[in-house]
């Protein structure tokens, strides 16, 4: 597989392609799950080494996976700060500062994700799909000095209402200055939120389309590798 990928500050870049086109592999290289045989990753012009998940987080790249990885029985702040809890020392002993965690979670959700959750203190098991998505994004943002948010099929398992919420969420996060790489099967969703679309085919970059100047047909043509006639069904 031999691919290059360019992401501009503050944009949503969608990556589309058939199963096996190499989308997931590309993302796993970016997030340090796999290592590239050759090539480099540069952020703001600086080359960064990504050999592990930790490296990727330190470089400002964080991923939200489809299953979100939330602990259902914990409320939003506990999930956002899981593993990186703020500590308050009492008699020298480390205690988790639940209040600070809650305030910072609300602030991240408001300032970086653009949402407010009325039920932030309830277990996330009680959350709607869009709310869970927001919590997972907030965790990714909190984990790093986040520059690039990778979202793997965020709408795949959602109903129409939740899909709309999630797409709004993606727009809101972008408007607040985080670049997003969105992996999706769904061209409708891609055309709603992405600025550019990179098409993958057979482990290679088949092309890049600027959403504002392209049609679904153009993109679909790149996915299957031929021109598509007007009636083709997406």
């Amino acid at each position: 597989m031999d691919v290059d990928l360019e992401l501009y500050p503050g944009e949503v870049l969608a990556i589309v392609g058939d199963n096996g086109a190499g989308k997931s592999t590309l993302i796993k290289v970016l997030t340090g799950v796999y290592q590239a045989d050759k090539g480099e990753i540069r952020i703001d012009g600086k080359t960064v080494q990504v050999r592990s998940r930790r490296d990727s987080i330190d470089a400002g790249i964080a991923a939200v996976y489809q299953n979100l990885g939330l602990v259902d029985s914990l409320p939003a702040p506990e999930n956002v700060f899981l593993g990186v809890e703020p500590i308050k020392r009492i008699f020298g002993l480390p205690f988790i500062d639940n209040r600070e965690m809650r305030e910072r979670t609300i602030a991240i959700l408001r300032d970086r994700v653009g949402v407010s959750l009325p039920n932030v203190d309830e277990p996330t098991r009680n959350f709607s799909g869009g709310q869970r998505q927001a919590v997972a994004i907030a965790r990714a943002i909190n984990a790093a000095e986040l520059k690039v948010l990778v979202m793997d099929e965020p709408t795949a398992a959602l109903g129409p209402e939740e899909t709309r919420n999630t797409l709004n969420l993606i727009r809101a996060v972008k408007e607040r200055g985080t670049s997003i790489i969105l992996i999706s099967h769904n061209l409708d969703h891609v055309f709603k939120v992405a600025d550019r679309v990179q098409v993958m085919r057979g482990g290679r970059k088949a092309g890049v389309a600027v959403v504002a100047n392209s049609t679904r047909r153009d993109v679909l043509g790149m996915i299957v590798g031929t021109d598509v006639d007007e009636d083709a069904h997406v």
Binding site: P118, S128, G129, E162
Partner: peptide, 13 residues
């Protein structure tokens, strides 16, 4: 800032 409703029916559970 938008509020995402905790729509009971839209939830995963």
């Amino acid at each position: 800032t938008t509020t995402i409703p905790a729509d009971k029916n839209a939830g995963r559970k």
